[in-house]
Simulated scan of single mutants.
Amino acid sequence: MSRSVLVTGGNRGIGLAVARAFADNGDRVAVTYRSGEPPEGLMGVRCDVTDPAQVDAAFKEIEEAHGDVEVLVANAGVTRDGLLVRMSEEDFDAVLETNLKGAFRVAKRATLKMMRARQGRIILISSAVALAGEVGQSNYAASKAGLVGFGRSLARELGARNITVNIVAPGLTATDMTASLPEERFQHIVNQVPLRRAAEPHEIAHAVQFLASPNASYITGAVLPVDGGVAMGH
């Protein structure tokens, strides 16, 4: 049965792969994006998840077109890397504001309708960095680790309403963001991955689709690493 699906930050990279996977499955898919252009063939809504008013307006637009959101994938995220001694409070706050508080805003808005319907799926896109840490990414790691505690708390709050909340933790993935890394840096990261390669975006999308499917109806509060083994043991 076709569902109303929202993917935040869905006009490129992992978010776009997730959105296309749901669309290919026959779902009614909308994506939010802050910059760039909306993806062809999908409903695109410009929205900055750091602005509560824009989040509410985006949901209203999507609800009018596709109905209440039944599957939410909170994927929107930013990086502002730097060593702690050089990191400004602005850079630390900006990453948490988008990656963690942005997920809070969209999850809260989606949950209002999911609770009334007594069903729903929420998938938060975290990172292997949240589990293993990374030099120069203390703000990013903190924001993505926060999603684990946030998601597991929601899983306990919402489970009685048949709403599952799970977390996917991708590792290094072949996207425009990683393509901008210097070759030496990219290869250094790959060498730490047991499978010795980066993930393809569709591999992350498959994990998200599984957690949103009937096959995962008894899974909630889980952290699913899709990282080639880089964060195993954490």
Score class of each variant (00 low, 15 high):
134 E>A: 12
108 K>G: 01
104 F>K: 01
201 P>T: 06
110 A>F: 01
167 I>H: 13
26 G>V: 09
149 G>A: 09
86 R>P: 00
220 T>V: 03
48 D>R: 12
80 R>D: 14
227 D>R: 03
49 V>H: 10
82 G>Q: 11
100 L>V: 07
99 N>H: 04
66 H>G: 04
210 F>S: 04
147 L>R: 08
125 I>W: 03
170 P>D: 07
61 E>P: 00
135 V>F: 13
117 A>E: 13
204 I>D: 02
230 V>E: 04
83 L>W: 10
71 V>M: 13
177 M>A: 08
198 A>T: 06
231 A>M: 02
50 T>S: 15
172 L>G: 08
47 C>F: 10
140 Y>A: 12
180 S>I: 00
215 N>C: 06
79 T>D: 12
43 M>Y: 12
19 A>Y: 07
112 L>D: 06
31 V>L: 07
189 I>H: 02
127 S>Y: 00
45 V>G: 02
29 V>P: 13
73 V>A: 07
220 T>H: 01
201 P>R: 03
212 A>M: 07
159 G>I: 07
94 A>S: 15
68 D>C: 04
176 D>A: 15
147 L>H: 06
34 R>H: 13
133 G>V: 11
218 Y>W: 13
61 E>D: 10
177 M>F: 03
176 D>V: 03
124 L>C: 09
113 K>D: 09
69 V>D: 08
210 F>V: 00
23 A>E: 13
7 V>W: 12
126 S>K: 02
